[in-house]
């Protein structure tokens, strides 16, 4: 849509009258070519395209290069850059302040799969309304190149030697932990990243996006499983994803059996166009199987791996007021003077 703005030339705006610039953040200070930057850009595009109100989003992150990125997008949103590995708890508490808000979190593989594994798994089982993006590069970027827990066995890194351990698979962990939305993607596949973020923003509970996001400075050798080259050569997409917002009509027609539709919490639709084999992302055991198979075959399996729109979200479990808790007046949160006598009566 083109509109004439009062103070300038015509600029592109979306349905709520915001331009792409309204979704931007500060200029990035990450390395040029870092996968994390490409994900930040897709967050901006996704938010713009789904007409997201920036003020309705709260950003969270832990510590790491990845966790720095919330300052590189959505400057018009509140944000809290917490502690290393402890972002999920921060988001859990903060999202109770105003339950109409959506959480958008960025973490790294160190932040999530090492120091933060406990909070990651517990946030998942509580199903809070949070888009949880793990920018997974198999390495600790910010502390200059140590192995992370997602690094493949046998990976060789400068000054670090050879990694002797088996890796942690974040998507698999999320799935085993009962996440209600699990996706894997690749920073080198921006279109898929963007559509997955849109879908995640429409999800009512937690959505875990394990996005392989190469660290060009410390872990981008062609043979490394978190590099651009390896990803490009080994990516196998489960389906081609497109996201249709609630109000819009589905324009493309698919033939019988050609595509699957998933209706999201907010009424939007995710269309999964078949590529190769049939895949049903609502089937949990099938999801576990394909992840195992991908690990065995050493392919980078991407797409919407699992979705469950039935599970109640954290907010529903707590049965809180329609008015956001942080807007309740004193009268509503301090019991009446009369009740004091009743309480004293209970104290024997």
């Amino acid at each position: 849509m083109d509109v004439q703005t009062a103070n300038g030339p015509r600029s592109q705006v979306n349905l709520i009258g915001l331009s792409r610039a309204d979704y931007r953040g500060n200029p990035t200070t990450l390395c040029q070519g870092c996968g994390h930057n490409s994900i930040s850009n897709q967050i901006i595009s996704a938010a713009y395209e789904v007409n997201l109100e920036p003020e309705s989003v709260v950003k969270f992150s832990g510590i790491g290069c990845s966790s720095k990125s919330p300052t590189y997008f959505l400057n018009r949103s509140f944000g809290f850059n917490g502690l290393h590995g402890r972002m999920p708890s921060l988001a859990t508490g903060a999202l109770f302040g105003d339950h109409t808000l959506k959480g958008l979190a960025v973490s790294g593989d160190g932040d999530t799969a090492s120091i933060g594994m406990g909070q990651f798994k517990h946030a998942i089982r509580r199903n809070l309304r949070l888009v949880y993006i793990v920018e997974n590069n198999g390495v600790y970027g910010l502390t200059k190149g140590q192995f992370s827990a997602t690094a493949e066995m046998g990976l060789r890194l400068k000054n670090q030697g050879t990694n002797p351990y088996m890796p942690i698979d974040i998507a698999l962990e999320a799935l085993v932990g009962n996440a209600t939305f699990v996706a894997r993607s690749f920073a080198g596949d921006p279109k898929q990243v963007k559509e997955l973020i849109k879908a995640a923003l429409s999800h009512g509970g937690i959505s875990v996006l394990d996005i392989i996001s190469p660290c060009v400075t410390f872990n981008n050798q062609d043979s490394a499983m978190h590099s651009y080259t390896w990803g490009k050569e080994h990516e196998v997409a489960l389906h081609e994803l497109s996201f249709v917002p609630p109000a819009e009509e589905i324009m493309i027609e698919y033939g019988e059996g050609e595509a699957k539709e998933v209706t999201m919490h907010d009424g939007s639709t995710v269309i999964l166009k078949k590529l190769g084999k049939d895949y049903d992302p609502t089937n949990r055991s099938e999801a576990l199987r394909v992840l195992e198979e991908a690990n065995a075959q050493q392919v980078l399996l991407t797409g919407l791996i699992y979705i469950n729109t039935e599970q109640p979200s954290l907010r529903e479990i707590y049965n809180i007021t329609e008015t956001p808790l942080n807007r309740l007046s004193q009268e509503r949160i301090r019991p009446s003077r009369e009740s004091m006598e009743m309480v004293n009566g209970l104290m024997f």
């Binding site: 709260v58 402890r86 921060l90 988001a91 859990t92 508490g93 903060a94 999202l95 302040g97 105003d98």
Partner: peptide, 11 residues
């Protein structure tokens, strides 16, 4: 962490 998140969000 949760308590601080909640305090930050005005609770």
């Amino acid at each position: 962490g949760m308590a601080i998140g909640a305090g930050w969000s005005g609770l």
